[in-house]
């Protein structure tokens, strides 16, 4: 169903790449592409998780704060445990699941709208983190912790692998698994899903806790890739995540979307950002370009939907 939008994104990606290859000889090198993938892998993980949340009819604006909390917890554990990856991931996953669970409780249990819930927890998680860390950085991270994201795996930096793995998992879930059907059903029409016997609460807990777990893992890779951990990490990241999902063609009202579309959305935004840097566009102009692209993506998706609706009406 989303085939048309995905082809359109692929075409946009090809045009942007051709233009950039023409403008800068560095663009088409392997090193540059590895850098684009490594630089956007964490965004890809979060965006695939967000795709599931948005398809289920929700949104999670607290992902940036949750990532910062998880990366700080992971960093603190790593310093005490000598960077033991098992302990680090267990701690980050645990705190990520807890934050996702709290979001789910507020949304499902107290029926507070997802956008308000996660806007509030965005502030609460970040505020608590800054209060506890008092704004201090952790920079004495052990080498074993840094190796998690930086060591080579199959010839590329290891951080690229989880991004692709989460994207593949989300694609499998949405196209092949029963749980994916449930997500689409709940997002498409919650009431009819409920009457068909689907437990809305269980689906919501699952999807927000999955998002929390992904944010937790992403936090480990974030800290490991940067080599430091701090309370102000990833401020505003949720906007890039939602932007990538929306550009990828997932319907913000839920019920429709694809993991491949999100992958292409992340790549398109990543390529544009890379191109702006290679073309030496001043930083204060970059946001105008990003905003214009975001708007173009949203408008084209709306026009496409309208055309689709007209076809169904006939």
């Amino acid at each position: 169903m989303r085939r048309g939008h995905e082809l359109g994104l692929l075409a946009a990606l090809a045009v942007a790449s051709a233009l950039l290859a023409f403008l800068s000889p560095q663009f088409l090198t392997t090193a540059n592409w590895v850098q684009i993938l490594a630089g956007n892998s964490i965004l890809l993980m979060l965006a695939e998780g967000m795709t599931l949340v948005i398809i289920s009819g929700g949104i999670d604006l607290s992902v940036g704060s949750a990532l910062a909390v998880a990366s700080t917890v992971a960093g603190a554990v790593a310093v005490r445990a000598g960077g033991n990856p098992v302990l680090v991931f267990a701690a980050a996953l645990g705190i990520g699941l807890a934050m996702g669970g709290l979001n789910a409780f507020l949304i499902s249990g107290l029926s507070i709208p997802p956008i308000v819930t996660t806007l509030a927890t965005l502030g609460i998680y970040r505020g608590l983190l800054l209060e506890i860390t008092e704004g201090n950085w952790i920079t004495n991270l052990p080498p074993r912790f840094l190796a998690i994201a930086q060591r080579p795996l199959l010839g590329v930096p290891a951080v690229i692998v989880p991004g692709i793995a989460v994207a593949a998992g989300a694609h499998l879930l949405l196209t092949r698994l029963y749980a994916g059907r449930l997500l689409l059903q709940v997002g498409g029409h919650a009431e009819s899903a409920r009457r068909a016997g689907v437990s809305l609460g269980r689906v919501r807990y699952a999807v927000y806790m999955a998002m929390g777990a992904i944010a937790g893992c992403a936090g480990v890779f974030y800290g490991s890739q940067l080599g430091s951990v701090q309370g102000n990490a990833a401020v505003g990241l949720e906007l890039s995540v939602v932007a990538a999902v929306v550009v990828g063609g997932t319907d913000i009202f839920g019920g429709r979307g694809s993991a491949i579309g999100t992958l292409l959305g992340v790549l398109l935004l990543g390529v544009i950002q890379n191109g702006l840097i290679l073309a030496r566009v001043p930083t204060y102009w970059q946001q105008v370009v990003t905003g214009a692209f975001l708007l173009a993506g949203i408008v084209s998706a709306a026009v496409e939907r309208r055309r689709e609706e007209r076809r169904f009406a006939l």
Binding site: L239, V246, Q287, T290, L294, I298, A302, R306
Partner: peptide
């Protein structure tokens, strides 16, 4: 155009802030 208000204003939030940054050069 019938675009959802959240999406529209999310995009224009980025765009308007970008224009402000561009005018003031940050």
């Amino acid at each position: 155009l019938g675009i959802s208000p959240i999406l529209t204003t999310l995009a224009t939030m980025v765009l308007f802030n970008g224009v402000a940054l561009a005018i003031s050069r940050g």
